[in-house]
Structures are given as C-alpha cells and as structure tokens.
C-alpha cells in the first residue's frame, strides 16, 4: 500500500472514536462531564492558545526538557565513552550506574525536593537523570562493540589515535548513539511531567494538576494532546537533524 494510504488507515480509528464520542454526548446518551467531547476540548485548546497561556506553558515545558536533555545527553555521552574505553572505570563505575538505572525515576522526586527545593533545578535534574541512562547505555555499548576488523583497517593505513577516533570510531558509534539520544528525548518528555507534578506554576504539567484540582477534564485532555504533539515534534526535529549522519545505513528507505 502507498505511504499516504497507510497514514490514512492509521487515522481511521482515532477519528471514528472521536466522532462517535461527539455524537454520543450530543445526543445525550452520555453526559461527557468526566470525558468532554472533542468539540469542547478543541474550544478549550483554542481559548488557551488565544490568551497566550498555551504558548507560555509549552515554552516552559520545552525549556525544561531542552535543558535536561542537554545536560543528560552530555553526561551520558561523556560517561559512556569513558567507561567503554577505560577498563578500570568500567569495572569500578558501571555496576553502580546499572544499579541506579534500576531505580524508578519517580523515586528520586522526594530526595531532589529535599536537596534542591521545588524550583527549576530539581526539575531539570530529574529530566537529565531520565535522559542520561539510555544515552549512557547506547554510547558505552556502541563503543564496546565497534568491529575490531574495521579498527584493523585503520591500523593498516597507519591512522593516528585521533584519526582512528574521528574516521572509524565516531562513525561506527554514531547510529547507536543517536538511538540512545532519541530514547533519551522520549524519556525527557516522560520525566518532565513527573517534574512538573512536583509543583510548578507554569508548564503543561501545571495544566494537568490545575485541571485536576479545579475539575477541568477538558483542560487535562488538552494538555495531554499538547504533550503528544510537542513530544512528536521534538522527535521529528531530532530525526531530521541527524538523518544525514546515518544515511549510509538506511536500507529500506528507498523502497518505501
């Protein structure tokens, strides 16, 4: 089936559910008090957008995710590269990192609040923690599994250490690193909700809390939809920016 057709098919189910719910509420079959119909959610979204509130909340959330992503990714790449290249560090550090990785993210929240208060620092830090682990795992795994046979090709052509890193190691680890970054960005959006639920005066997470406390389900659903769009958009930006770097490994793209 053509690509357009597949996308169209994927839209059938959500559209049918939305239209069905709209009709059900409209005809009085259900009240729609706890789950408002799409028209009411759309109106709420438009109101929020028109007042400029939506943009303000989206901006606050994106800045937190962006900062957390930068810190987490930088730390993940650095730690992953060090642990993969220095055996002593791998034996010393990696077991502890793997143990910390097993801690559920939300378990950090009380501790971070105690340590850093409830302002921006603990929020960005929590997101950075979420981003760190997939990037760390991706980078260290990629470096550890670089094909020794390709490194030998570099030795045959007498590459210096720097040239070997630049011309063979870097391109070899790039795909797995990018997968790690992409997973990390997804987790960043997951963690920003947790961060904003711990107390915020702006951000999409604040809209969720506010909607719950003042019983505004339309606002909650509107915030959820905005989260989905923002997350998807950020992912698309990351993929588009990095696609030229991994063009060589795409096998299926031409045939799509």
């Amino acid at each position: 089936m053509r690509q357009g057709g597949r996308v169209g098919l994927g839209l059938v189910l959500p559209l049918a559910l939305a239209i069905g719910w709209e009709i059900a509420v409209d005809s009085g079959l259900v009240s729609g008090r706890l789950l408002p119909p799409p028209s009411r959610i759309g109106a709420t979204l438009l109101d929020l957008a028109a007042s400029g509130d939506l943009l303000m909340h989206v901006e606050a959330t994106l800045i937190r995710v962006g900062l957390g992503f930068l810190w987490g990714a930088a730390a993940g790449i650095l730690a992953g590269a060090l642990v993969a290249t220095l055996p002593i560090l791998r034996w010393l550090v990696d077991p502890s990192v793997q143990a910390l990785r097993a801690v559920p993210s939300l378990a950090w929240v009380p501790l971070f609040i105690l340590w850093f208060g409830i302002l921006e620092t603990p929020k960005v830090l929590l997101i950075a923690v979420g981003v760190f682990f997939p990037v760390y795992v991706g980078v260290s795994g990629a470096i550890a599994s670089v094909d020794r046979k390709l490194v030998e090709v570099g030795r045959i052509f007498r590459l210096s250490r720097l040239a070997l890193a630049w011309r063979i190691l870097l391109p070899a680890v790039l795909p797995a690193t990018l997968v790690g970054l992409r997973t990390g960005l997804g987790l960043g959006f997951l963690f920003v909700v947790a961060a904003e639920l711990m107390g915020a005066s702006e951000g999409l997470g604040y809209l969720l809390v506010d909607g719950q406390q003042f019983s505004k389900p339309d606002q909650i659903v509107a915030a959820i939809i905005t989260f989905a769009l923002a997350g998807k958009l950020a992912d698309m930006v990351l993929v588009t920016l990095t696609r030229p770097l991994t063009r060589w490994q795409d096998t299926a793209r031409e045939s799509l």
Binding site: K149, L150, E152, V153, I156, I168, A172, L174, W248, Q249
Partner: peptide, 13 residues
C-alpha cells in the same frame, strides 16, 4: 598493503 578475507569496507563511506 593488506586485503583481508572479508572486504572490510567502511559502511559509512
């Protein structure tokens, strides 16, 4: 110069 049993081409070039 060396030619190995496998081509060992760099897939990103």
């Amino acid at each position: 110069g060396v030619v190995f049993q496998e081509a060992r081409l760099l897939p990103w070039l």
